[in-house]
Simulated scan of single mutants.
Amino acid sequence: MANTSKLPDISRIPFWTVSSSKQGLGVSNLADNNTDTYWQSDGQQPHTVTVKFRSRHQIHTISFYADIDKDESYTPCKVRILTGTIPYDLQLIKDLDLETEPRGWVDLPLDESVMAHLVQIEFPLNYENGRDVRIRGLRLWGPPPNHHRFKSEMILPYTTPEFLMYESLR
């Protein structure tokens, strides 16, 4: 994970679900910090991991661990990121064909830090036309600690720390 060393890991905050899984290879394997374990889907494509936050969170980068050498046709070659507030208003924010076969952590920086209640990571295609997918780790990264961006709900675009400390109610 090259670009994420100074970003806060927000992976433990949300509630995680997956579209399907083989018995014993479920969602808990995505966040166990062990790349020898994995989530394996069991169903029709696209396979998805859905992340639900209690309140809106800013997401800077999404990283996943995949290994073509170990998993061959179970390795995804295309990834889509969708965000929204509920499953019915998801909007595509990133659609990526992997340029190289993944052998480790793949970082997916978002164009702009995204504020979302719900994030869905979709794996629609695999190498060698594989049916199920294996993901050996998944992380969500927040913005850098000193990162401030203009929020669309702000009435005035003030960005100094003195103004930003009053941007929300407790």
Rank of each mutant, 00 (worst) to 15 (best):
Q44F: 07
I155P: 00
L98R: 10
G43H: 03
G84Y: 14
R134N: 11
S28Y: 04
L164S: 05
L125T: 15
G130A: 09
W105E: 08
L156Y: 13
F123L: 15
N126K: 04
N34P: 04
R170C: 10
S20Y: 10
S55P: 00
L125C: 15
P14L: 03
E72T: 06
D32L: 00
D97C: 01
V119I: 15
G24F: 04
K52H: 10
L92Q: 14
I93T: 00
L96P: 02
N146G: 15
I59W: 09
L156V: 11
D9H: 01
R54W: 00
Y74A: 13
Q120N: 09
T100G: 05
S5V: 14
I81Y: 04
S19A: 07
R131D: 15
R12Q: 12
S63D: 00
H57V: 09
Q91M: 09
Y127A: 12
C77M: 07
G130S: 07
V27N: 06
S55N: 08
K6A: 13
I59N: 09
G24N: 12
A2V: 13
T75F: 07
P102L: 02
C77V: 02
D9Y: 00
L90Y: 02
H47V: 03
Q40G: 11
N29H: 14
F150R: 15
L108K: 08
D132I: 01
N33T: 00
S28K: 07
K52I: 03
N126H: 08
T17D: 08
R149H: 15
R103M: 06
D89L: 02
D67H: 08
Y38A: 09
L140E: 06
S28I: 03
L164I: 10
T48G: 10
A31H: 11
H148R: 13
W141N: 09
G130M: 07
I10R: 04
W141E: 06
F15I: 14
L138C: 13
S55L: 03
T83G: 11
Y65P: 02
D9F: 01
P144A: 15
P14Y: 08
E162T: 04
K22L: 13
K94D: 14
L156I: 06
I13G: 01
V133E: 04
P102C: 03
E153R: 08
P102I: 01
T83E: 10
H57G: 00
T37V: 00
D107I: 01
D69P: 01
H147I: 08
P76W: 02
R103W: 00
T17R: 11
V51C: 14
L25K: 14
S63R: 03
V49K: 05
Q23M: 10
E122N: 03
R131G: 07
T83W: 02
D89M: 04
